[in-house]
Computed example of a mutant assay.
Amino acid sequence: MSEDAVLVNVEDGVMVVTINRPKAKNSVNLAVAKGIAAAMDQLDSDDSIRAAILTGADNTFCAGMDLKAFVTGELPMIKGRGFAGLVEKLPQKPLIGAVEGFALAGGCELALSCDVLVVGDNVKFGIPEVKRGLAAAAGGLMRLPKQIPPRIAMEMALTGDFISAQRAYELGLINRIVPAGSALEGALEMAKTIAANGPMAVLASKRVVVESGNWSEEEMWKNQAAIVDPVFSSEDAIEGSKAFAEKRAPNWKGK
Protein backbone atom coordinates (compact mmCIF):
# COMPACT_ATOMS: atom_id res chain seq x y z
CA MET A 1 0.00 0.00 0.00
CA SER A 2 1.29 3.45 -0.82
CA GLU A 3 1.96 5.27 2.42
CA ASP A 4 0.79 8.49 0.78
CA ALA A 5 -2.62 7.33 -0.47
CA VAL A 6 -4.24 8.30 2.84
CA LEU A 7 -2.85 10.79 5.35
CA VAL A 8 -3.84 10.51 9.01
CA ASN A 9 -3.25 13.18 11.63
CA VAL A 10 -4.46 13.20 15.24
CA GLU A 11 -4.44 16.35 17.33
CA ASP A 12 -6.41 17.37 20.43
CA GLY A 13 -8.62 14.30 20.26
CA VAL A 14 -9.58 14.78 16.61
CA MET A 15 -8.40 12.57 13.75
CA VAL A 16 -8.21 13.99 10.23
CA VAL A 17 -8.20 11.37 7.45
CA THR A 18 -7.24 12.80 4.05
CA ILE A 19 -7.58 10.94 0.76
CA ASN A 20 -4.33 11.97 -0.87
CA ARG A 21 -4.54 11.29 -4.61
CA PRO A 22 -5.12 14.80 -5.97
CA LYS A 23 -3.83 13.94 -9.47
CA ALA A 24 -6.58 11.31 -9.69
CA LYS A 25 -9.19 13.62 -8.10
CA ASN A 26 -8.85 11.51 -4.93
CA SER A 27 -10.49 8.54 -6.60
CA VAL A 28 -10.50 5.39 -4.48
CA ASN A 29 -8.15 2.53 -5.28
CA LEU A 30 -7.21 -0.40 -3.07
CA ALA A 31 -4.48 1.59 -1.31
CA VAL A 32 -7.03 4.24 -0.30
CA ALA A 33 -9.44 1.58 0.92
CA LYS A 34 -6.76 -0.01 3.09
CA GLY A 35 -5.72 3.37 4.46
CA ILE A 36 -9.25 4.40 5.42
CA ALA A 37 -9.97 0.99 6.99
CA ALA A 38 -6.83 1.24 9.12
CA ALA A 39 -7.77 4.77 10.20
CA MET A 40 -11.27 3.67 11.23
CA ASP A 41 -9.78 0.82 13.27
CA GLN A 42 -7.50 3.31 15.02
CA LEU A 43 -10.40 5.71 15.60
CA ASP A 44 -12.55 3.20 17.44
CA SER A 45 -9.70 1.53 19.36
CA ASP A 46 -7.96 4.66 20.69
CA ASP A 47 -9.82 6.20 23.63
CA SER A 48 -7.94 9.47 23.24
CA ILE A 49 -9.59 10.10 19.85
CA ARG A 50 -13.11 11.48 20.21
CA ALA A 51 -14.11 12.19 16.58
CA ALA A 52 -12.77 11.99 13.05
CA ILE A 53 -12.95 14.03 9.85
CA LEU A 54 -12.84 12.53 6.36
CA THR A 55 -11.67 14.88 3.63
CA GLY A 56 -9.74 15.01 0.35
CA ALA A 57 -6.51 16.69 -0.70
CA ASP A 58 -6.27 19.75 -2.93
CA ASN A 59 -9.84 21.02 -2.48
CA THR A 60 -11.52 17.93 -3.94
CA PHE A 61 -13.33 15.41 -1.79
CA CYS A 62 -13.53 12.29 -3.94
CA ALA A 63 -14.48 11.53 -7.54
CA GLY A 64 -15.44 7.94 -6.74
CA MET A 65 -13.87 4.62 -7.64
CA ASP A 66 -10.64 4.68 -9.64
CA LEU A 67 -12.00 3.41 -12.97
CA LYS A 68 -8.52 2.91 -14.42
CA ALA A 69 -7.73 0.51 -11.60
CA PHE A 70 -11.17 -1.09 -11.92
CA VAL A 71 -10.68 -2.07 -15.58
CA THR A 72 -7.45 -3.85 -14.61
CA GLY A 73 -9.38 -5.96 -12.12
CA GLU A 74 -8.52 -4.08 -8.94
CA LEU A 75 -11.45 -3.59 -6.56
CA PRO A 76 -11.18 -0.97 -3.79
CA MET A 77 -12.95 -3.18 -1.29
CA ILE A 78 -12.02 -4.42 2.17
CA LYS A 79 -13.62 -7.62 3.44
CA GLY A 80 -16.17 -6.78 6.10
CA ARG A 81 -15.93 -3.05 5.34
CA GLY A 82 -16.82 -2.81 1.66
CA PHE A 83 -15.96 0.05 -0.68
CA ALA A 84 -13.19 2.35 0.50
CA GLY A 85 -12.89 0.37 3.72
CA LEU A 86 -15.84 2.25 5.18
CA VAL A 87 -19.33 2.02 3.68
CA GLU A 88 -20.33 -1.39 5.10
CA LYS A 89 -18.89 -0.88 8.59
CA LEU A 90 -19.20 2.62 9.98
CA PRO A 91 -17.19 3.73 13.00
CA GLN A 92 -18.76 3.87 16.45
CA LYS A 93 -17.38 7.37 16.98
CA PRO A 94 -18.59 10.47 15.10
CA LEU A 95 -17.33 10.88 11.55
CA ILE A 96 -17.56 14.32 9.92
CA GLY A 97 -17.21 14.82 6.18
CA ALA A 98 -15.31 17.95 5.11
CA VAL A 99 -16.29 18.20 1.46
CA GLU A 100 -14.82 20.41 -1.26
CA GLY A 101 -15.16 20.35 -5.04
CA PHE A 102 -16.82 17.11 -6.05
CA ALA A 103 -18.42 14.25 -4.11
CA LEU A 104 -19.43 11.99 -6.95
CA ALA A 105 -20.27 8.29 -7.30
CA GLY A 106 -18.26 6.50 -4.62
CA GLY A 107 -17.24 9.90 -3.30
CA CYS A 108 -20.88 10.78 -2.73
CA GLU A 109 -21.35 7.40 -1.07
CA LEU A 110 -18.46 8.17 1.28
CA ALA A 111 -20.14 11.46 2.16
CA LEU A 112 -23.42 9.63 2.80
CA SER A 113 -21.54 7.37 5.23
CA CYS A 114 -20.50 10.32 7.39
CA ASP A 115 -22.59 11.37 10.37
CA VAL A 116 -22.54 15.08 9.52
CA LEU A 117 -21.28 17.07 6.53
CA VAL A 118 -19.57 20.46 6.31
CA VAL A 119 -19.45 21.49 2.66
CA GLY A 120 -17.84 24.19 0.56
CA ASP A 121 -20.34 26.30 -1.38
CA ASN A 122 -18.95 25.10 -4.73
CA VAL A 123 -19.52 21.39 -4.12
CA LYS A 124 -21.40 19.09 -6.51
CA PHE A 125 -23.00 15.87 -5.30
CA GLY A 126 -24.11 13.02 -7.51
CA ILE A 127 -24.35 9.28 -8.12
CA PRO A 128 -23.67 9.24 -11.89
CA GLU A 129 -22.83 5.51 -12.07
CA VAL A 130 -25.67 4.86 -14.56
CA LYS A 131 -23.87 7.11 -17.05
CA ARG A 132 -21.03 4.54 -17.06
CA GLY A 133 -23.23 1.46 -17.13
CA LEU A 134 -22.77 0.90 -13.39
CA ALA A 135 -24.92 1.25 -10.26
CA ALA A 136 -24.31 3.14 -7.01
CA ALA A 137 -23.87 -0.10 -5.07
CA ALA A 138 -21.63 1.32 -2.30
CA GLY A 139 -24.63 2.55 -0.34
CA GLY A 140 -25.87 5.36 -2.58
CA LEU A 141 -29.05 3.61 -3.69
CA MET A 142 -29.90 2.68 -0.10
CA ARG A 143 -28.67 5.60 1.99
CA LEU A 144 -29.65 8.49 -0.27
CA PRO A 145 -33.45 7.89 -0.08
CA LYS A 146 -33.13 7.78 3.73
CA GLN A 147 -31.35 11.13 3.84
CA ILE A 148 -33.36 13.11 1.25
CA PRO A 149 -36.90 12.74 -0.17
CA PRO A 150 -37.13 9.38 -1.97
CA ARG A 151 -38.40 10.85 -5.24
CA ILE A 152 -35.40 13.17 -5.45
CA ALA A 153 -33.11 10.26 -4.65
CA MET A 154 -34.79 8.27 -7.41
CA GLU A 155 -34.24 11.09 -9.89
CA MET A 156 -30.56 11.31 -8.98
CA ALA A 157 -30.13 7.54 -9.25
CA LEU A 158 -31.84 7.25 -12.65
CA THR A 159 -30.47 10.38 -14.34
CA GLY A 160 -27.02 10.47 -12.79
CA ASP A 161 -27.29 14.27 -12.66
CA PHE A 162 -25.55 16.38 -10.01
CA ILE A 163 -26.98 18.71 -7.38
CA SER A 164 -25.34 21.80 -5.92
CA ALA A 165 -24.32 22.38 -2.31
CA GLN A 166 -27.24 24.77 -1.88
CA ARG A 167 -29.73 22.23 -3.22
CA ALA A 168 -28.21 19.56 -0.97
CA TYR A 169 -28.63 21.87 2.03
CA GLU A 170 -32.26 22.58 1.11
CA LEU A 171 -32.92 18.84 0.91
CA GLY A 172 -31.36 18.25 4.34
CA LEU A 173 -28.44 16.23 2.98
CA ILE A 174 -25.75 18.41 4.55
CA ASN A 175 -25.38 20.29 7.83
CA ARG A 176 -23.40 23.41 7.01
CA ILE A 177 -22.32 25.32 3.91
CA VAL A 178 -19.09 27.30 4.22
CA PRO A 179 -17.06 29.33 1.71
CA ALA A 180 -15.13 27.15 -0.72
CA GLY A 181 -11.78 26.18 0.70
CA SER A 182 -12.86 26.31 4.35
CA ALA A 183 -14.71 23.00 4.77
CA LEU A 184 -11.92 21.43 6.81
CA GLU A 185 -11.78 24.48 9.07
CA GLY A 186 -15.53 24.26 9.62
CA ALA A 187 -15.36 20.51 10.24
CA LEU A 188 -12.56 20.98 12.77
CA GLU A 189 -14.68 23.51 14.63
CA MET A 190 -17.54 21.01 14.83
CA ALA A 191 -15.22 18.14 15.77
CA LYS A 192 -13.73 20.13 18.64
CA THR A 193 -17.23 20.85 19.94
CA ILE A 194 -18.02 17.12 19.85
CA ALA A 195 -14.66 16.18 21.42
CA ALA A 196 -15.38 18.49 24.37
CA ASN A 197 -18.51 16.51 25.27
CA GLY A 198 -18.77 13.40 27.43
CA PRO A 199 -17.33 10.50 25.37
CA MET A 200 -19.77 7.89 26.68
CA ALA A 201 -22.69 10.23 26.05
CA VAL A 202 -21.53 10.93 22.49
CA LEU A 203 -21.12 7.24 21.63
CA ALA A 204 -24.52 6.36 23.09
CA SER A 205 -26.25 9.28 21.38
CA LYS A 206 -24.85 8.35 17.97
CA ARG A 207 -25.81 4.72 18.47
CA VAL A 208 -29.42 5.53 19.35
CA VAL A 209 -29.82 7.91 16.40
CA VAL A 210 -28.37 5.31 14.01
CA GLU A 211 -30.19 2.25 15.33
CA SER A 212 -33.57 3.66 16.35
CA GLY A 213 -34.81 3.94 12.77
CA ASN A 214 -35.33 0.17 12.79
CA TRP A 215 -37.01 -0.02 16.21
CA SER A 216 -40.72 -0.66 16.60
CA GLU A 217 -42.94 1.41 18.90
CA GLU A 218 -43.03 -1.48 21.33
CA GLU A 219 -39.28 -1.92 21.64
CA MET A 220 -37.85 1.58 21.25
CA TRP A 221 -37.86 2.65 24.93
CA LYS A 222 -36.36 -0.64 26.11
CA ASN A 223 -33.69 -0.54 23.42
CA GLN A 224 -32.81 3.07 24.20
CA ALA A 225 -32.58 2.34 27.92
CA ALA A 226 -30.12 -0.49 27.30
CA ILE A 227 -27.83 1.97 25.55
CA VAL A 228 -28.20 5.15 27.62
CA ASP A 229 -28.69 3.80 31.17
CA PRO A 230 -24.94 3.13 31.59
CA VAL A 231 -24.34 6.78 30.67
CA PHE A 232 -26.61 8.06 33.46
CA SER A 233 -24.91 5.81 36.03
CA SER A 234 -21.37 6.70 34.93
CA GLU A 235 -18.69 8.73 36.70
CA ASP A 236 -18.82 11.15 33.77
CA ALA A 237 -22.48 11.92 34.47
CA ILE A 238 -21.58 13.01 38.00
CA GLU A 239 -18.55 14.94 36.75
CA GLY A 240 -20.58 16.75 34.12
CA SER A 241 -23.14 17.88 36.70
CA LYS A 242 -20.43 18.98 39.14
CA ALA A 243 -18.57 20.89 36.44
CA PHE A 244 -21.76 22.72 35.48
CA ALA A 245 -22.46 23.69 39.10
CA GLU A 246 -18.86 24.77 39.65
CA LYS A 247 -18.72 26.67 36.33
CA ARG A 248 -15.67 24.81 35.00
CA ALA A 249 -14.79 22.51 32.15
CA PRO A 250 -15.47 18.84 32.93
CA ASN A 251 -12.66 16.31 33.27
CA TRP A 252 -14.04 13.31 31.41
CA LYS A 253 -12.85 9.79 32.24
CA GLY A 254 -14.95 7.90 29.73
CA LYS A 255 -16.42 5.70 32.44
Rank of each mutant, 00 (worst) to 15 (best):
residue 62 C to E: 08
residue 237 A to H: 10
residue 211 E to N: 11
residue 214 N to W: 08
residue 40 M to R: 05
residue 235 E to C: 00
residue 169 Y to V: 00
residue 163 I to S: 02
residue 105 A to W: 03
residue 223 N to K: 15
residue 222 K to T: 12
residue 119 V to Q: 07
residue 155 E to I: 01
residue 61 F to I: 10
residue 244 F to A: 15
residue 75 L to K: 13
residue 220 M to K: 13
residue 17 V to E: 01
residue 226 A to R: 15
residue 253 K to V: 11
residue 234 S to P: 12
residue 110 L to C: 05
residue 75 L to W: 08
residue 199 P to M: 09
residue 170 E to K: 12
residue 86 L to A: 10
residue 74 E to Y: 09
residue 116 V to Y: 09
residue 75 L to I: 13
residue 226 A to W: 00
residue 146 K to H: 02
residue 175 N to S: 14
residue 96 I to A: 11
residue 143 R to K: 15
residue 187 A to E: 10
residue 11 E to R: 11
residue 167 R to W: 00
residue 148 I to P: 05
residue 170 E to M: 10
residue 11 E to H: 08
residue 245 A to V: 09
residue 178 V to H: 07
residue 20 N to Q: 07
residue 124 K to P: 00
residue 42 Q to A: 13
residue 227 I to L: 06
residue 221 W to F: 13
residue 164 S to N: 06
residue 108 C to H: 10
residue 171 L to M: 10
residue 130 V to A: 02
residue 39 A to L: 07
residue 224 Q to L: 14
residue 146 K to Q: 14
residue 92 Q to F: 02
residue 191 A to P: 03
residue 157 A to Q: 07
residue 96 I to Q: 10
residue 96 I to L: 15
residue 176 R to V: 14
residue 76 P to M: 03
residue 245 A to H: 08
residue 52 A to T: 04
residue 23 K to G: 01
residue 165 A to I: 02
residue 242 K to A: 06
residue 155 E to N: 05
residue 70 F to S: 03
residue 227 I to N: 04
residue 21 R to W: 05
residue 119 V to W: 07
residue 250 P to E: 05
residue 107 G to T: 11
residue 87 V to G: 05
residue 74 E to T: 12
residue 184 L to S: 08
residue 98 A to N: 02
residue 3 E to A: 12
residue 144 L to R: 03
residue 248 R to F: 07
residue 65 M to F: 02
residue 222 K to Y: 08
residue 5 A to S: 14
residue 208 V to W: 01
residue 88 E to H: 10
residue 124 K to E: 11
residue 190 M to D: 08
residue 3 E to T: 11
residue 179 P to W: 00
residue 83 F to V: 08
residue 103 A to C: 02
residue 52 A to K: 04
residue 117 L to T: 06
residue 44 D to L: 04
residue 164 S to I: 05
residue 84 A to N: 09
